[in-house]
Write a protein that binds this DNA or RNA. Structure first.
Length: 488
RNA sequence: GGUCGGGUGGCCGAGUGGUUAGGCUCAGCUCUGCAAAAGCUGCUACAGCGGUUCAAGUCCGCUCCCGACCUCCA
């Protein structure tokens, strides 16, 4: 518990003690979704990982401003001039206004994240709402001599930039090798000076729907400039944490850093955090591979890869049982294991309030607490923290069985610890059908009736009640201290 | 082809030099009218080969296998 929070920094390739630039304030930026289709489960993993980061930082007492953008102007399909805006393409296919598409998927996106119990970010800015900022930043980069215009399109001059600044710092690649990769890069890119140059502003073709006026004519912003513009607007030229999926490192984040440095001479984030991919049978989940599924399909089980449906909290728990920086392989058996584990943990929490207290505790509360906090402080090691929670669950169950003891003070502390870690930090929540007065009342009645028939040794009737309840997802347990039930 | 990351027991998945990860599964026991739950016990590990070390899953080298990125991608 005396340990300090350490975070693995992609920039330095080391775990570093976290020291905010302006404690107690923390600025965090995470690259959000491009709203051209539904977010799949792999996308959700990243946002879930940063939700825990957000929650834990807040739990530690920091005042966190968490900015997660929404990309609603569309990225190009290719690096060349041929690319069609993803959102515009979708709009054409669905015969809708581009902003209708964005709205449709924005609503869906927020619903999904809400299902997974993600806290909303402090600010969720859209690219289309910050065209002016992006134009201004582009102008500055041109003024600084690191971008050039060719026929209404502004290109970032990577090689010139790289002469003075470490362009490949994040990716760890070698510039020469990147330049050497001379393949299929001619089409539509004749106007670029360098192979690695990327667009800050694109000239809009006549048929392009989403367009804005700029000093260079009608067009739209490039892929990377929005994050630079919005992060510096809301978090300043330098802030604490920048996050995203690790597949963004070599291109998007590398270029983002370059833009900020080219504009303001400052690298935007002190710490870069990257989450790893969700895999299916060892392969990255992605739309193009056809192995992705949507949260909705996961909940209902309506996908060939799924044996049945799983609840959002089970999926959340499943994801938290792996470290964010590791690949996590999806499978039905793994999800089923998480489901049972999650239930075990939740059941232990329910037992806690009713535990009998003693003069002595047969376990060391401070050690348990330290284990959990040390785990979280070690680069948000949620699987290890969960292992600590299970240790606590074992204690709770043992006390409940009369095989261990707990003092009133420890019980109170344990309840507080579990509540804070499980609910506040890990973001899990109860999702049983129970809780309503009506359901509780009905269950009490049923259990009373069952008690009566059991007293008469009418076990056939007793078992029938139990079996029928199980069919609707309610499990009855005949314990020593009476009958309890759980719902899933 | 280049760059980077990884290969842990039946499954998922922590762990970077010496100490039980944890969850799930399976078997046995306790409890139970029977179950379930819970508790206890047991089972199968560190891809391979070599090296460093008193000591290696953990460090070094090589081999094999896998993945990610290099093109939009969380």
């Amino acid at each position: 518990m005396n340990s300090e929070l350490k975070i693995y920094n992609t920039l330095t390739r080391e775990k570093e003690i976290f020291k905010p630039l302006n404690a107690p304030h923390v600025g965090m930026y995470v690259c959000g979704p491009t709203l051209y289709s539904h977010a799949h489960l792999g996308n959700c993993r990243t946002f879930l990982s940063f939700d825990v980061v957000f929650r834990y930082l807040k739990h530690l007492g920091y005042k966190v401003r968490y900015v997660r953008n929404i990309t609603d102007v569309g990225h190009l399909e290719s690096d060349g001039d041929e690319g069609e805006d993803k959102i515009a393409k979708r709009a054409r296919l669905e015969k809708l206004e581009p902003m209708e598409i964005v709205q449709l998927y924005a609503v869906d996106f927020h619903k999904v994240l809400d299902d997974f119990n993600l806290l909303p970010p402090s600010i969720e800015p859209t690219a289309s709402g910050h065209i002016i900022e992006q134009i201004e930043m582009t102008k500055k980069i041109i003024e600084n001599g690191l971008a050039y215009e060719v026929d209404g399109t502004i290109w970032f001059d990577v090689e010139k930039f790289a002469m003075d600044y470490p362009y490949t710092e994040l990716s760890g690649r070698k510039l020469d090798e990147m330049l050497d990769g001379t393949r299929d890069n001619l089409e539509g890119q004749e106007e670029k000076r360098g192979r690695l140059d990327f667009a800050l502003w694109k000239k809009a073709k006549p048929e392009h729907i989403m367009r804005w006026t700029s000093p260079w004519g009608e067009g739209f912003p490039g892929w990377h400039i929005e994050c630079s513009a919005m992060s510096s607007k809301y978090l300043g030229e330098q802030f604490d944490i920048h996050g995203g999926g690790m597949d963004l490192i070599p291109t998007h984040h590398t270029n983002e850093v370059a833009q900020n440095v080219a504009c303001c001479k400052k690298s935007p984030a002190k710490v870069w955090m990257h989450t790893n991919m969700l895999t299916v049978n060892g392969q990255k989940m992605s739309k193009s591979l056809g192995n992705s599924f949507l949260p909705e399909q996961l909940f209902t089980g309506s996908h060939p890869l799924l044996e049945r449906g799983y609840s959002a909290m089970v999926v959340r728990f499943f994801m938290l049982q792996a470290h964010y920086s590791s690949t996590l392989d999806f499978s039905n058996t793994a999800l089923q294991a998480s489901e049972k584990g999650c239930q075990r943990l939740m059941n232990a929490m329910k037992l806690m309030a009713g535990l009998k207290t003693s003069d002595k505790s047969s376990f060391n509360f401070e050690n348990l607490k330290a284990d959990i906090y040390n785990a979280l402080n070690d680069d948000f090691n949620t699987p290890l923290a969960i292992a600590g929670l299970f240790e606590g669950a074992g204690v709770i169950n043992s006390v409940n069985d009369g095989k261990a003891t707990i003092t009133a003070a420890d019980k109170e502390q344990l309840q507080k610890l579990f509540s804070e870690i499980v609910f506040d930090v890990l973001g899990l929540k109860e999702e049983t059908g129970a809780g309503s007065d009506k359901v509780d009342g009905l269950m009490n009645l049923i259990i009373e009736l069952r008690k009566d028939v059991r007293a008469k040794k009418d076990f056939a009737a007793s078992d029938k009640i139990r079996d029928e309840l199980l069919k609707v997802g309610i499990q009855v347990k005949d314990g020593k201290e009476g009958v309890t039930w759980t719902s899933n």
